[in-house]
Design a protein around this nucleic acid. Structure first.
Lengths: 197, 197
DNA sequence: TTGACAGGTGAACGGATGATCACTATTGTA
DNA sequence: TACAATAGTGATCATCCGTTCACCTGTCAA
């Protein structure tokens, strides 16, 4: 009979720790948390978790940091009914910081409320919050917040005959072809929506 | 004339660093980032930021960690053009914490990755993150995460001839009419999407 | 039965880390 | 102008940290 890999269990402990302390614990502490007698075991564990894509090293100083996958739980994929036990209990306390998820460069990121339905076909609705990054170069195909007639407008940036134009994602709206130079406020990097309870 | 406190600026740099490396940098690195010649300046900066409520120490080992306030973002609402002034000047700068916006009852809230396109017509795309609240009574018209064939499915809850059924928002998918009792995992209260840069 | 492999041990090492302290520079105010 | 408060300097020190290496111990497949 094969020995079950305990790494998922270890990962859960690390997630709990991260939820409280917002950091990957030092090796010594990992060893204490998981019952290792040696720091080296912690080192090897993290290397395994790195291969699995749950942690990675910081570009800055080679310290360990969690990846996006670290915060996720593939619920739909792994969901299995197990008798009377609530299978979801185990996944109740996932640390997931939404801000971390959508905000990359905090100092240049702002929230912009979306008005109107000119982007509905792209799944962007009236009342949504656009996460907008300022000062980032916009490429064709990006959703951008542009300044048109002294107002902020969210559209797709398109290159048309050598010029930049703003394309709505709703056939009821016309493409905007700015007369002068197109003023880009920022690039849309995320979306946040709230459903009324 | 008063000298502007540079701490907000420093805080922004720390936020950017945190977004990339998911940690408060060590003192040496803070000094390099902010142009300090001495680590001690970094130490004192963090103590100031602690008083202001932006960082705190971990219960576990006294390391620095960010607080919720650390992650708050400015909100660009009521955009008004004001001459040559940077438009961001004119925008309302109320701090905005995405988690607070989208998460009401943290202990009962989970993130569920959305797979498939059965809800595209409701502006919910493959790869989006659904913010799901457990233990809340679901009403017809709510988007709910239900358990169907041991898998989590996101659909609209509809009452049909006295029974609850699950309605996709995509004509290519059929309405799900569960044979036994419908098992509701939770109610969708929010949506978070990230655009690839 | 054997051998490869994955996971864990224990110890040693060099370097980075945070704390502390006396001192300095700058600036607003009394 | 004088002074106090705030922000930053430079250096020391003990400690903690991650790395590395040889070695150990099960398990599984050949």
């Amino acid at each position: 009979m094969s020995v079950p890999n305990k790494d998922p269990e270890h990962l859960d402990r690390l997630r709990d720790y991260y939820a409280e302390n917002r950091r990957i614990p030092p090796f010594q502490r990992i060893a204490e948390l998981l019952g290792f007698a040696s720091k080296a075991a912690s080192s090897k564990l993290l290397e395994r978790l790195e291969s699995a894509g749950f942690v990675e090293r910081t570009a800055d100083d080679n310290a360990w940091m969690p990846t996006r996958r670290f915060f996720e739980r593939p619920l739909a994929a792994n969901f299995i009914r197990a008798g009377a036990a609530d299978p979801i209990e185990a996944s109740g306390a996932e640390p997931f910081l939404v801000d971390d998820y959508v905000v990359r460069t905090p100092s240049r990121t702002m929230m912009v409320p979306v008005r109107g339905d000119s982007m509905v076909d792209a799944g962007i609705h009236d009342g949504d919050m656009a996460v907008v990054e300022r000062g980032t170069g916009a490429k064709p195909g990006d959703f951008v917040v542009a300044i048109v007639d002294n107002e902020l407008t969210l559209k797709e940036l398109i290159r048309e005959r050598g010029r930049f134009v703003l394309k709505p994602h709703n056939p009821a709206y016309p493409v905007i072809r700015p007369k002068g130079e197109l003023e880009i406020f920022g690039v849309m990097v995320g979306l946040v929506r709230r459903y009324a309870s």
